[in-house]
Nucleic acid binder design. Sequence first.
DNA 1: CTGAATCCTATTTGATACTG
DNA 2: CAGTATCAAATAGGATTCAG
Lengths: 119, 119
Amino acid sequence: MNDLRREVRKKIENGEFNCEKELTLSIISGKWKITIIYYLGTDGTLRFSEIKHLFPKITHKVLTTQVRELEEDGIIQRRVFPEVPPRVEYSLTELGQSLMPIVLMMYEWGKQNLKSFNK
Amino acid sequence: MNDLRREVRKKIENGEFNCEKELTLSIISGKWKITIIYYLGTDGTLRFSEIKHLFPKITHKVLTTQVRELEEDGIIQRRVFPEVPPRVEYSLTELGQSLMPIVLMMYEWGKQNLKSFNK
DNA sequence: CTGAATCCTATTTGATACTG
DNA sequence: CAGTATCAAATAGGATTCAG
């Protein structure tokens, strides 16, 4: 769905309208992004390895690209500690924080409607 | 991103937790879905051709699959009128209506943060 | 520990043409 | 008008390996 990301940014540059919802969607779309945002929003700060631990099935590379895109979008902050071995901590930016209400609402909606989908 | 759709449904069947947010995301993910939901939520009922008209660039086939998936997820209702030429009208179900606050929030967030992304 | 580079595959979207 | 079928293109996600 990163097609959306690029496409929406292009639309914005061109001053096209009607892409506000797509903008928001394009940011949180990605198999792990909302959950990453959710955890960072509730836990505060997490190391790369801690996030990786939260998703047993995520690949190293995939996590890297997901956080990188979120960083590009200004949603999360990446702080590198010049140590050996390296330590990298991620946290929500203010912009990312402002996304939390939406994420929480999605969480609530999902919780309330889980049964409907459990055939 | 319909990979998510299938995957989340499987998780739900297996009684796995922590997929509430993904459930919500999996429903609205898709290049045109939130916008379709948005229009149906504000305009009420729309014919297939009317929706198609709203998205000059959408393909016949793609629109078909998007509405079909939304229908499968119980978000929209499809009413077929046995006429010639055929008429098919789409509208939000109650479940779909309950999604509107989220869609509207995404709209607002996008509107307020458009500038941040317009470098 | 974090992450970069490759390579590979499944999925999604799109183009096009055909049907009742 | 609405929908289907087929085929092609793009890309997101994953497996694996190497590096500082």
